[in-house]
Computed example of a mutant assay.
Amino acid sequence: MKISHYFELEDHVTGGIHESVVHQRKMLDLIGLPYTTEPSLDADVFHCNLMGPRSVWYAKRARRRNMPVVANTHVTAEDFGDSFRFTNALAKPLRPYLERAYGLADALVCPSEYNQRLIETYTDVSTTVISNGVDRGKLEGFESLEAEYRERYDLRPPVVFLVGHVIKRKGLETFVELARQKPDLDFAWFGPLDLSLKGRETTELIETAPENCTFTGYVDDIRGAFAAGDIFCFPTHEENEGIALLEAMTAGKPVLVRDIETFSWLEDGTDCLKVSESGIGGFVDAIDRLSDPAERDRLGSNAAERSEAFSLESVANQYQSLYEEVA
């Protein structure tokens, strides 16, 4: 069996979608399944990761040849808003487009049960939940970078941190306000800023953040973020899964999340701390609770154990089973 594993705009799309595709290809290598990254119709399955116009064009032609089409549902109208400039305006017309595009597939791959429930309101195409997974090997040796990255960004432990593109949807306003409420702690958001792509409100939040809130911009070795950080604070409002969250758990960091449906699989007080209230007070209380090193160690250890089920080795066979089912 050969897979056409296509990622439209591969050279331009970054962040979680890019990481998911990297993980998928590593999983295909692990199970020894041959694939091409070209949008080829000379294969047994056409698998597309971003349903842009070119992917739709190939998907239509694949169906005419009775070639099964698999698509990942990385993008939804719900998580498209509050990302980059103009995304709010595009979110509304995006939904009917995605309804038609996802409807071309024979099987849809959803990264979480929440995403699956959402996608089932888009189309009646069969859905399967397969995690984006976490590349444990990518984080190997991260501990050795602790001193270097704390010195580079002038961070004193315990450091409250976040990893990924700086996007309003991911809880930027909460993160900044939390830093303002806790001036005795250092906060660091590791990830690309791309200010030219941000809206005015997002840019203002970044530029007016308090001194104890650092935006590092692009980090050459992401292991440094997990080495420098102590408390992974992820107040996102909407998420399909969250690879950075899985990475933080794998690194044994205690995680603090907003109590949204995406994170229903996490157990509050065991795998993480969840904040359900809309104001900042719940996050302040949770940070205070995590000021105790023993509590951080307990939650971090539990998180690391829970993350083992998301390793690429654990997830890979689910793709093989799906391909065999549709082929």
Rank of each mutant, 00 (worst) to 15 (best):
R54T: 14
V109I: 09
L30C: 11
T202K: 05
F142H: 15
A251F: 14
L139N: 13
D230R: 05
V56R: 01
C48H: 15
F175M: 07
I17F: 09
K2M: 15
H18F: 14
T203Y: 13
E204I: 08
G52K: 06
W189L: 07
K92L: 15
Y102I: 03
D285S: 13
E241P: 02
V13Q: 14
C110A: 05
Y218N: 07
F161P: 00
G171Q: 03
R289Y: 00
M1K: 15
P235W: 01
R180I: 01
R180T: 03
L145M: 10
T127M: 08
V255Y: 11
K198G: 07
G15H: 05
P39H: 11
T123D: 02
D44I: 14
T87C: 11
E19W: 05
A227N: 13
T87W: 04
L245K: 02
A89I: 01
F283S: 00
A286C: 07
L33C: 10
R61K: 07
L197F: 12
S321M: 03
C110K: 07
V255L: 05
K274I: 00
R117F: 12
E8V: 10
L256V: 01
D220T: 05
E207T: 11
G224V: 01
S278Y: 08
F86Y: 02
E313P: 06
G199K: 01
G242H: 08
P93M: 15
F226C: 13
N212F: 12
L205C: 10
V159A: 07
K253I: 06
H237E: 10
I260N: 06
F215D: 03
G300F: 00
K253T: 02
S264E: 05
D221R: 11
K182A: 08
L108T: 01
A303I: 03
T250L: 07
T236P: 02
V159W: 07
G191W: 01
A227P: 08
T73D: 07
T73Q: 03
V166E: 06
D259S: 06
D124P: 05
D186K: 06
G81M: 12
M67W: 00
G81D: 09
E143F: 15
T203R: 15
G224F: 03
K182S: 11
C213Q: 03
S278N: 15
R117N: 12
A179C: 02
L195C: 13
L178W: 05
H18P: 11
D297M: 12
E201Y: 11
A316Q: 07
P39I: 08
I222C: 11
P192W: 04
T123N: 09
E151L: 03
Y149V: 04
H74M: 05
